[in-house]
């Protein structure tokens, strides 16, 4: 711990605590209520796990990109596209076949949506962050246009698709209302494990890590850096799309305008907090899930606007990013 970092942490805490005091809420009270609203009751735990699922899958998507040297800020767009495609496929083809189709379709759609960013980075030298920001905005407008037009459920006032039939939903693994756990959560955890194994034990994972850590050295080591870059982006996008599929099939059961409350951006924070191991994504996603569910709870219970959660998450990202830099430098 050094003084610079200490100042940053104190300042961040000061901002949050100051904001709470300014609106007349005791900070300790807010903290306890966040815990109560996120892990205090079986129902709260269920909501937190539900909130954690997309963060987990999207966190894996971003993490994979980061390992390969790509900042996939576009998971938000890939998530929307994946969800939209999954919903329309699931509505067309009901049953288990529809579920499979929706999962695969969502992943492919996400990958295709990420492809331009990977290609531009590899062959045109354009920064992937800029291109994925553009793709996010296009995805937002495109899906909104679709759900307001061709995909809109007949007879509905709001811009939404129809709801999936029960046979096209992902089942609950554990259901004792109010606590329910969807199988999608297990699926997400399995994805983390698979990624961890793949990165550590396969030649392709080794080469992807090399491209991310030192692209020039990777090139001299016989790795086709451009090809790896495009494939990394495709894989990251596919996982992003997959997160959208899961969200539709497991929880939302439809697609509508304003489908994502910004999961994609929170997932960037999750991946950064995860550090250098894929397993780090799990606690990071859990933390963000707790904060999100808890802050929804206190916005009703204590009249604290939900915006404070954004401030808190932003500050956590900043502190952690500053900390990580210091740690990696102190090795040298």
């Amino acid at each position: 711990m050094n003084w610079k970092l200490a100042i940053l942490i104190v300042a961040a805490l000061g901002v949050v605590i100051g904001a709470l005091i300014a609106i007349g809420v005791a900070p300790s009270d807010a903290f306890l209520q966040i815990l109560k609203g996120s892990v205090g009751t079986p129902g709260a735990i269920g909501r937190t796990l539900r909130e954690t699922t997309p963060l987990l899958i999207l966190g894996v998507a971003v993490f994979l990109g980061l390992r390969g040297g790509l900042f996939n800020i576009g998971v938000e767009g890939q998530f929307l596209i994946g969800a939209c495609v999954a919903a329309s496929l699931g509505l067309k083809v009901p049953g288990i076949l529809g579920v499979l189709l929706a999962i695969v379709g969502g992943a492919i759609a996400g990958a295709l949506w990420a492809f331009p960013a990977g290609w531009i980075k590899a062959y045109r030298g354009g920064h992937e962050v800029i291109s994925t920001i553009m793709l996010n905005n296009i995805a937002f407008h495109l899906t909104t246009g679709l759900v307001a037009g061709p995909l809109k459920a007949p007879g509905q006032q709001s811009t939404t698709t129809a709801t999936l039939t029960d046979s096209t939903k992902l089942p609950m693994l554990y259901s004792a209302p109010p606590l329910t756990i969807n199988i999608a959560l297990i699926f997400a955890l399995a994805l983390v494990a698979a990624l961890a194994l793949w990165l550590k034990r396969t030649v392709a994972g080794y080469e992807l890590n090399a491209v991310g850590a030192n692209p020039k050295a990777a090139q001299f080591a016989g790795v086709d850096v451009r090809k790896v870059t495009v494939w990394t982006m495709l894989a990251s996008g596919a996982i992003g799309g997959l997160a959208g599929s899961c969200q539709v099939l497991a929880y939302e059961h439809r697609f509508y305008e304003g489908f994502s409350p910004g999961y994609g951006f929170d997932a960037l924070g999750v991946a950064l907090l995860a550090g250098s191991s894929p397993w780090g994504v799990v606690p990071a996603a859990g933390l963000f899930g707790i904060l999100s569910t808890g802050s929804s709870f206190i916005s009703a219970a204590l009249q604290i606007p939900k915006g404070l959660n954004g401030v808190l998450i932003g500050l956590i990202i900043i502190v952690f990013a500053a900390f990580r830099y210091r740690r990696s430098r102190s090795n040298g």
Partner: peptide
């Protein structure tokens, strides 16, 4: 393994 990663015996199939 850098540069030799695809050579035997460092590699067996797809695995390291």
């Amino acid at each position: 393994a850098l540069g030799l990663q695809r050579l035997e015996p460092l590699r067996s199939g797809l695995w390291v």
